[in-house]
Simulated assay, not measured.
Amino acid sequence: MTRVTEHLRLARAGAVATLTIDRPAKRNAMSLAMWSALPELMAEVDADETIRVLVITGGEHFSAGADIGEFAALRTEPADAERYGLAVHDGARAIATLRKPTIAAITGWCIGGGCEIALACDVRMAADDASFGITPAKLGIVYAFASTKQLVDVVGPAWAKQILYTGDIFDAATALRIGLVNELHPGAAAVRKRALGAAELIASRAQVSVRGAKTIVNRITGGQLTEDDAVRELYQESVTSADYAEGVRAFLDKRKPNF
C-alpha cells in the first residue's frame, strides 16, 4: 500500500505503516492541506486490520511546524483563523485517537505543529541532534487545549509552562531529560532504524494486549481513576481471544507465539 497526498506519503511494509512528511523545501512545514489530509489518512490506517503500528517520520527534518507563509492569506480574519485552528486540531486528534500504537521518529527540527504531531504519538524517538520547541508565544496564538494537555501529560505542568511561555528552542538532550522523548539515537538513520524495529516488535506482540494497554493508559491520562464496565470488558475480551489461546499454547510448547 502506498498512498500519497500533498507532501504526505503513507506506505506499508508488513504490519507496519509509515507516514512520511515530505516537503523538504519548507523543512516539512505543514500546510493547511496537509493538516486537512491527516484525518482521512488516519482513518485508512485504522480501518486496515493488517496494519498494527504506525511510524511517523520526515526527512532531514521531522517538521518545522505550521506553514506561517500561509497565514497572511488563510488566517487574517478571525473566522479564517478559527477554521485553520480546527484543521490543525482535527489532524493532531486523528493521530492521538488512532486505536493502534504510533511512534514518532524525530530528526532535525521538531517545532510548533511538528512537536504537536510528535506529542500526538504514543512513543517519541529522536536523533541526538534534533531540536524542539513550541512557539505560539512568538506569534500571538494560544496553544490548543487538547495539545496543551498532551504536553502537560508528557512533561508535567512546570516544563509545559516554561516551553509555552518562552517559545524557546531546546536540544534533544533536554527533550530526553524532561520526558518529551523516550530515546535518543546517533543520527537520522539510527533513529529511523530503531523506530521501525520497535514498531515491528510491537506488531509481533498480542494485539489484544497492546490495544487494551493503549485504551487503559489513555483513559487514565483522560482522568479515569477506577475500573469501569468498559475496562472490565477489555479483560474479558483478552481471556477469550485467539491471542490468549495462542500465548498459552506457545508457553506450554516452549516456543515463540505467533499472534
Rank of each mutant, 00 (worst) to 15 (best):
C121K: 00
C110Q: 07
A130Y: 03
G133V: 10
D129L: 05
A126H: 05
M125C: 03
W109K: 10
L119H: 04
A96R: 12
G114I: 02
P101F: 07
D129S: 11
L98Q: 10
A118P: 06
C110V: 05
P101N: 10
A120Y: 06
T102I: 14
A105Q: 05
G114T: 02
L98F: 12
I106R: 00
W109P: 00
D122H: 08
E116S: 12
I117H: 02
G114M: 07
A94M: 12
D129T: 10
T97C: 08
F132G: 03
A105M: 10
E116R: 04
I95E: 02
F132L: 08
K100N: 04
T102G: 02
C121G: 01
P101C: 06
E116N: 13
C115H: 03
A104P: 05
R93T: 15
F132Q: 07
T107E: 05
G114K: 03
S131D: 08
R124T: 11
L98S: 13
A118E: 07
I103G: 00
P101W: 11
A126K: 09
G133I: 13
A127L: 09
T107Q: 11
C115V: 07
T135R: 04
C110L: 11
A126C: 09
T135S: 05
M125V: 13
A94T: 08
L119R: 04
D129Q: 09
A130P: 11
A126N: 09
V123T: 15
A118F: 03
I117W: 02
K100P: 06
W109I: 06
I95K: 00
D129G: 01
A105S: 15
A130W: 02
A130D: 06
R93H: 12
L98N: 10
W109M: 15
P101Q: 11
F132Y: 14
G112R: 00
A96D: 13
G113M: 10
F132K: 00
T102Y: 04
I111Y: 09
R93P: 00
M125W: 11
T107A: 12
C115W: 00
I106Y: 02
A127K: 06
